[in-house]
Amino acid sequence: MLDIKRIYLQAGAADLPRGREILDRWPAATIVDIESHQRIPEVYGAETNVRRWVRIKREALVVGIKKTMTARPNGRSADFIAPSTANGCAMACAYCYVPRHKGYSNPITVFANIERILSYTGKHAVRQGRKPEPNECDPKDWVYDIGENSDCSADALVSDNVRDLVDLFKGLPNAKASFATKYVNRDLLGWDPQKKTRIRFSLMPQADAKLLDIRTSPVGERIAAIDDFVAAGYEVHVNFSPVVVRDGWLDDWRDLLDQLDAGINAETRRQLATEIIFLTHNRGLHEVNLGWHPRAEDLLWRPELQQIKRSQNGDLNVRYRTGSKGGYVRALTDLIRARTPYLRIRYAF
């Protein structure tokens, strides 16, 4: 997954204990001093050359300092989005919306000022007090998403930031952490999360994943890991995301549900829930993908099925047409209730 040869180092990061730990982990890496962890000319460009992207993702690491601390309200997957301890990703999913400031290669950036992030997050949770009533995020705890712009399972290959967050939430009586992942990192099994961290394994039919989920753990490996993570003390949910509509899509989802059902035990079933998110795609990413992975766009860019929606930042996104999408959602949720009736649907859109 990672073979770090260059570390882009923001001024001041090496003076912090976590920054020094990261540098010591890859002592042979070339250090490149940078002013900002967001805009790095060397990782820009070559948008149509995925070989360069993958090489940068594997070989480059950015070590920065997070300046702005906020816990944004969310309200669907989590109550709050915690201040991130990383952004970027070692994987290269064809539909990923995250690449922005660092160019489409978007390697992992890890923040060295972890003590400040932990302090802010803990104090924010304490200020919330007891959760007054259950909601769709959780019946008891305030839920903090700790991996909005990265994959925490991969981030844990780089530093102890994710483990520090898991440890933090063990000590918070009113809050739990949550993150989605497409990578099986079994090192996390030894962390004793005490049910205060929710891992959401993202799943889709293998035929789609083979084409779209690039550099991720195979879907079968993710399913095979679920029971182990439940036994290790995690709350485990599954994300069906993104759901891609194509010929035969519902039949393949039926097969995936049967695979999931056969791969998990009774303890897992009792606590399992799902979030269902149908594909939203971006015109700019579509044009980039045409240069290196046009077969992915055969699934992702379907003008006959989609409508344009302008996002808050002005980007042109496409999603399945109003009316038709409602039928797709009902078809999948009906299938889930028929094949895996124990699988609680937290939300679907």
Rank of each mutant, 00 (worst) to 15 (best):
A28D: 15
L332D: 10
Q271F: 02
I56D: 04
R116L: 09
V288N: 02
R344I: 10
P27I: 01
R127L: 05
V245S: 05
V219S: 03
G263S: 00
V143N: 07
I40G: 11
V230H: 04
P193D: 12
L272E: 01
A273N: 12
E47M: 00
A180G: 11
L332S: 11
A14G: 12
S178V: 01
I40L: 09
P134M: 03
S150H: 14
A209D: 08
G323H: 00
R55E: 15
R254T: 08
A46E: 13
A232Y: 11
D227Y: 07
V32L: 04
R186E: 15
I276A: 09
R270E: 12
V288K: 05
A112R: 06
A331G: 15
K196W: 08
S150A: 15
R337M: 01
A175P: 12
L299D: 13
L256P: 09
K123E: 15
T109K: 01
G129Y: 02
G263P: 11
R116C: 05
G129K: 03
K210S: 13
F229K: 08
H37Q: 03
F80R: 11
H281P: 09
V54N: 12
F111K: 07
Y183D: 14
P27G: 00
I308G: 07
D160C: 02
G291I: 04
I65M: 04
H286D: 15
G45M: 06
E235L: 08
A207V: 13
E35V: 05
V230G: 05
Q271G: 15
L316Q: 12
Y320V: 06
S150P: 12
V245P: 09
T274Q: 00
W292A: 05
T268L: 05
Q194S: 07
V54P: 07
L168G: 08
A13I: 03
D138K: 09
K210N: 14
T121H: 00
I4A: 06
R20T: 00
G326V: 04
G75F: 05
K325W: 11
P303I: 03
S217L: 03
D138H: 15
G284A: 01
G45A: 07
R295Q: 14
G323Q: 05
G103T: 10
R51W: 07
K182G: 13
P218D: 12
K325Q: 14
R6N: 09
K102E: 13
I31Y: 08
L16T: 09
G45K: 05
P107W: 03
N185G: 13
A94N: 07
F80W: 13
R321L: 02
D208A: 06
K131G: 02
L9R: 15
N282T: 14
E304A: 09
H101P: 03
A209L: 03
E42N: 04
Y320K: 06
A94F: 02
D334V: 01
R58N: 13
V230I: 01
V318I: 11
I345P: 00
N317K: 09
C93V: 06
P83L: 05
N106R: 05
D252S: 14
S324W: 01
A82H: 06
E35Q: 10
K325L: 14
A82G: 04
K196G: 11
A175K: 01
R269Q: 13
T30A: 00
H237M: 02
R283L: 14
E221N: 10
D255S: 13
F169D: 06
A86C: 12
L316T: 11
P27W: 00
A262K: 05
Y95T: 09
A14Y: 03
A11N: 12
A11Q: 14
R283I: 11
S217I: 10
K195R: 14
R18V: 01
L300H: 06
